[in-house]
Amino acid sequence: MNLSEIPIRVEPNLAEEGLGGGVKALLHEVLTMLERLVSTGTEGAVDLRSLPMTPDDWQGLYAALGEGGVDAVFESNGRSRVRETAVPGVWWIEHRDADDNVVASFLEVTTVPPLLTTDLVDVRAGIPRLRAMLTQAGAQAPFHGGQYDG
């Protein structure tokens, strides 16, 4: 692999972005939450829709936090998106309704948002389904040495 093929993730330089006062204050709050997460394990969150943010503030916040490596989307009465920002542990979560209107927007400071985890109750509910699928597959096409008969 030569140098130009090494993937590079750009860390946003907050000092150069010219952040508005509201965004700076918000990021200071997020910083405090991150420090608390590391020292005590306490998670935090900010409801972005409760803040008086201008369109410039939204853009500034998005630019400042950047995008991380995880981007998950799920459908539930509208699309919801869970993205880790370029700041590890800071997740941007956006919920939309069936008409694609944003109904909630949060920053969560956590190692992994609960929305990305699977409840054990759901896991238990899925086991019989997989078992039934395997049983059916086994009945229809016997498995021989790693290959299914056609």
């Binding site: 909630a104 929305l115 759901d122």
Partner: peptide, 11 residues
């Protein structure tokens, strides 16, 4: 799902 319900409660 629990995820659907969590979204409902969060919103």
């Amino acid at each position: 799902s629990r995820r659907d319900f969590l979204k409902f409660c969060t919103v």
